[in-house]
């Protein structure tokens, strides 16, 4: 999808969904990544993993479907699809750490030019640290896709030469989807895939990270 305007959150989710290979096993992080599920093609065969012990997670539960024993990682009620399976936490993270998940999608505070990810703590002295499964996912999934705004509210880029926030994982992000541009990150560096409402030159001027 090309656009001459910055993408909405829905459009970002639609673009990410289109890049998920058919039949992939995918973990969607809490928050914005959850929206990707709404744009998966029927028949894509994509199977959703939730780290609290399920493959084959279905859409949010409503009304009579709500079962307190069936929730996603955000503790929201969800449904199960035919072919679903349940397993305990150690198995759930073993399948993650063991490289069996194809893609995980997460939000971020910062991503570095080497693919380092910072998304669990701002490092503020009074913050209560809480990491959940983010560090396990970051190094476990075969590919880590990040969705975020490219610039913070103060205009500072969140794609940076080196993360200043505490790291979640090193060299783990392979794709970065933002409201104004999407990137591929690999051992060679950062590669621009597409822009939305910003020119390549303006992007280069506003980022401290070189890209091809």
């Amino acid at each position: 999808m090309s656009s001459d305007k910055p993408l909405t959150r829905q459009q970002m989710a639609e673009i990410v969904a289109a890049d998920i290979p058919d039949g992939a096993y995918v973990n969607l992080g809490i928050g914005q990544p959850t929206m990707v599920a709404d744009y998966l093609k029927p028949g894509s065969g994509v199977v959703l993993h939730t780290e609290n012990g399920m493959l084959g997670m279905g859409p949010p539960a409503v009304g009579d479907q709500i079962d307190p024993d069936l929730t996603n990682a955000g503790k929201q009620p969800v449904t199960e699809l035919p072919g679903a399976s349940y397993f305990h936490h150690a198995d759930s993270f073993a399948m993650m750490r063991g490289g069996h998940l194809d893609v995980c999608i997460m939000g971020a505070f910062q991503v570095s030019a080497r693919g380092d990810l910072a998304n669990w703590s701002t490092g503020a002295p009074d913050a209560i640290p809480a990491v959940g499964g983010a560090m396990d996912l970051a190094i476990g999934a075969k590919q880590v896709f990040v969705m975020m705004s490219l610039f913070a509210k103060d205009g500072k880029p969140k794609l940076v030469p080196d993360c200043t926030y505490p790291l979640t994982g090193k060299a783990c992000v392979s794709r970065l989807y933002t409201d104004v541009a999407s990137f591929r990150i690999d051992a060679d560096g950062v590669h621009l895939l597409d822009t939305y409402g910003i020119s390549r030159d303006e992007l280069a001027a506003r980022l401290d990270v070189p890209f091809t």
Binding site: H89, R97, I128, M135, D136
Partner: peptide
């Protein structure tokens, strides 16, 4: 928890979720 932690009345060890499960 937040109140106790900020008041220094409780210790916290944060462990990544998978490590928590695997350590047990």
């Amino acid at each position: 928890f937040d109140g106790l932690y900020r008041a220094g009345k409780i210790e916290l060890e944060v462990v990544p979720q998978g490590n928590l499960a695997e350590r047990m």
